[in-house]
Write a protein that binds this DNA or RNA. Structure first.
Lengths: 223, 223
DNA sequence: CCTCGCAAGTTTGTCGACAATAATGTCCGC
DNA sequence: GCGGACATTATTGTCGACAAACTTGCGAGG
């Protein structure tokens, strides 16, 4: 029975509000440090304070917002030092995942990896930064899917959310693709060749280079 | 006026309830899989459902309980496979911390490390398992304090909470102290000698051995 | 005897209202 | 004119009540 329209009381309000609010924070609709007043969010999201507060609490657990007792919530401001710390953790955890991926990869997945590698090289040669950035995400995502490590996955996903803004800055650094392309190709090769140790090392080297780039941005002073 | 009795509204209820509930789950007062009925918790913790629910949500974020829509919360049941995954992540993250500790350690802290090492050896020789287990926690805690990596710290702490029950079983495995003592001594030596690479390797080897012990328990069938 | 459907009871989902706390503006005394 | 105490206001903290959903037990039909 398709009672699609019947919604006297929104079903699954909590999840909807949580996702909407997360999206708003992630897309930068609310800037870091900005106060998130519950009453305003109620209107914006068409939900009660109860639901909004639950969403706020969830996002705090994900490290996207910060709540202080009696002082409300605000979008978490991630300092450069914290961004480096977060990326350091990502380095070792994604290294773990890459190692497992090298153990678990199937022939079909190996082909998919190679395809992404080819597309990446083309994108760099064509200077299509946006496309390269998308492929980058797709590569890391595929590695995680192959690694099939739910615990590590969840952590990486959480950490990634905290970095959206910094990650954006990073993609604008000139010369970054030329640096990272060979690193990505090494990761792909190691997993394809089913060499866990090499895969972990390649992934760690790659993200270590990301950390160096982050620090470089810091010294130059971000725009 | 001694307003000892005047408590029309407890102050800071949320934090108190959250901590009490976490403690109850961690100490095994509620067993894995057990349903946590909000109304019961209200009575037990002397708080409203609003507060109890917030605490439940927090604990879900920490991975201690599991909430299903319209089906309430229950203590999360951590399978052996998940315990292994969690420990794998701990392995790489604590490895990161150990490496940093080797870079940041002060002379005073090095002495403290050595002291713990001595006490550990004595505890093993005296067969005082409980004492050794306490020292083990103290060592890992000190390394984390020296490493001063707040992001990694938070993650390790969260993961540790999810494992309390398994960790308990592990300490009962005969011969475990004899295996882990030299590993701990290697960790201490590497940090004391300010050798980050060796410290990370030592920590990873140590926790890798914990993983093997976990798997062994699994095969034997836990009592 | 088993199975399906219905109804009663239990538990969770959501809301609006009120109390407490922090932030802000203001007035008085110096 | 300036600083501090006080009143005001905005915002969060907590609660009880009601609605929705799931579970369970019972009875009728096969």
């Amino acid at each position: 029975m398709p009672d699609q329209e019947r919604r006297p009381r929104a079903a699954g309000t909590a999840a909807r509000v949580r996702d909407a609010l997360r999206d708003a924070v992630l897309t930068g609709e609310y800037l870091p440090g900005e106060r998130l007043v519950e009453a305003q969010l109620c209107e914006r999201l068409e939900a009660s304070r109860f639901t909004v507060r639950a969403a706020l609490q969830d996002l705090a657990g994900e490290g996207l917002v910060e709540v202080q007792r009696n002082r409300g919530a605000q979008v978490r401001k991630v300092s450069m030092a914290e961004a480096v710390e977060i990326t350091e953790v990502r380095m070792v955890v994604e290294g773990l995942i890459a190692g497992r991926a090298a153990e678990l990869v199937t022939g079909e997945q190996a082909i998919e990896l190679d395809e992404i590698g080819v597309l990446m090289r083309r994108a760099v040669e064509a200077g299509e930064h946006r496309r390269y950035s998308d492929l980058n995400q797709r590569l890391h995502g595929l590695v995680r899917r192959i690694g099939a490590h739910s615990t590590a996955d969840r952590i990486v996903e959480t950490l990634r959310g905290q970095l959206v803004r910094h990650q954006y800055m990073l993609s604008l650094v000139p010369g970054r693709p030329q640096t990272s392309l060979p690193q990505h190709e090494r990761i792909i090769a190691a997993i394809r060749d089913r060499d866990p140790k090499a895969a972990e090392t390649a992934m760690r080297d790659h993200i270590a280079s990301v950390i160096e780039a982050l620090k470089a941005i810091d010294y130059m002073g971000p725009a």
